[in-house]
Design a protein around this nucleic acid. Structure first.
Lengths: 211, 211
DNA sequence: CGTCTGCCTGAAACTTGTTCTAGATTAGCG
DNA sequence: CGCTAATCTAGAACAAGTTTCAGGCAGACG
């Protein structure tokens, strides 16, 4: 048993994230993520069962685990996908409000409406994100960075945000996640979520350049 | 199979929370929670294994499940215990700062230091809290209410808080939970947690009577 | 073309949360 | 005390995440 360092498709190469993937491998990966999103959309976190994902994606169970080392990894990767899509959409149609705080609120409410259309998918992704332990650290970090970037963009702090702006964005991101959790677990209405989002955006002001 | 409504010790009686419990039963319940806290303190969420808890508590597995219908229920009950203890402590030594925001920050930092002493226990309880699904709704609600009460107390809104104060407390509670999560999953340092707490308390001001 | 290495498959095994069953114990109660 | 229903115990059984293993296939390289 030498230092095998079993070559995971998802990456021994450290930096290049996901190094060179064969065409067929890229294809497999896509099928896995598609199957995951389908099942998640159907029944949430619990409905994403690894055997079922593997079957739908037409890969062996072992292969699924080679691409994504755990169910949480798989779902966080799915979240990354969705966040990137959202980022695309926002780039095309940015929020229109004048105040930074209002723009952030507008952006998050848009995202929230999208999640409301697929509450089960939202459940799967968010639960995975917050349940993730240290072993998923890097992947969660990527998702978190995407979220922060979306918020900072809405704040108008696109390029080089100040430390203060970063702190504010963190607080907003935290509130966003926690509000989603309470909504998903049925302890808060969607109206309550809206209130929470508006409250935090209003209170912290999401200032673009305030000293 | 009639409408058995299997009489769980934890309560068919709805309101009285946990109705009349025999001495022996109360004793069992204590042993279970003790074993849970021990295991959790040792290795966090994953180390709390139902068989092991049952064995340490000296009860059968079936009994454990009769008292706490799932691992998450068990850990949320443990959290409730700890929160009540914290509340006691705070009643004896309330925060000293003059500003409401500062008092909240002081209170939360005190709680955070306590958690830092038992990071694994914190891991188990917090992960359970946020991972809880609808079936744990009532228990999570209790824990959430305890947390809110602690924050509102620190704000000086003890008796009858205004809607604005409730919103603010919600945002603070959300940030608190989310900050803990990022700390527990190793994506934020304890210094970062302190910053987040101070940021949200400062930004929202935790106003005691502001219109 | 043949071989070699690494990826993929199918299937079984293992782990841990959860459920179920049969029998022993206990708590209430007449 | 003796009866009844509820509770507890020991242990098997089941479900889903994860690991492992033997063998097949494919592309790289000589």
């Amino acid at each position: 048993m030498t230092t095998t360092s079993r070559a995971v498709p998802g990456g021994p190469g450290r930096r290049p994230e996901r190094p060179q993937l064969t065409e067929r491998q890229e294809e497999r990966r896509r099928r896995i993520l598609k199957a995951t999103a389908e099942l998640a959309g159907l029944g949430g976190f619990d409905a994403v069962q690894m055997r079922e994902v593997a079957e739908r994606a037409g890969v062996a169970l072992g292969t699924l685990y080679r691409y994504f080392p755990s169910k949480v990894h798989l779902l966080v990767a799915t979240l990354q996908d969705q966040l990137r899509q959202l980022q695309e959409t926002l780039r095309k149609r940015p929020p229109t409000a004048a105040e930074p705080g209002a723009r952030v609120a507008q952006t998050l409410m848009r995202a929230f409406r999208a999640l409301q259309r697929e509450p089960q998918l939202a459940d799967a992704m968010v639960r995975a994100l917050i349940f993730a332990d240290r072993s998923v650290g890097p992947e969660v970090e990527v998702a978190s960075r995407l979220t922060s970037a979306i918020i900072l963009d809405a704040m108008g702090a696109g390029g080089r945000p100040t430390p203060e702006q970063l702190s504010v964005a963190r607080v907003i991101e935290h509130t966003w996640h926690a509000a989603l959790i309470t909504w998903l677990s049925g302890r808060a209405s969607s109206a309550q979520v809206r209130t929470d989002i508006e409250t935090v955006c209003r209170l912290v002001g999401a200032p673009a350049d305030r000293p």
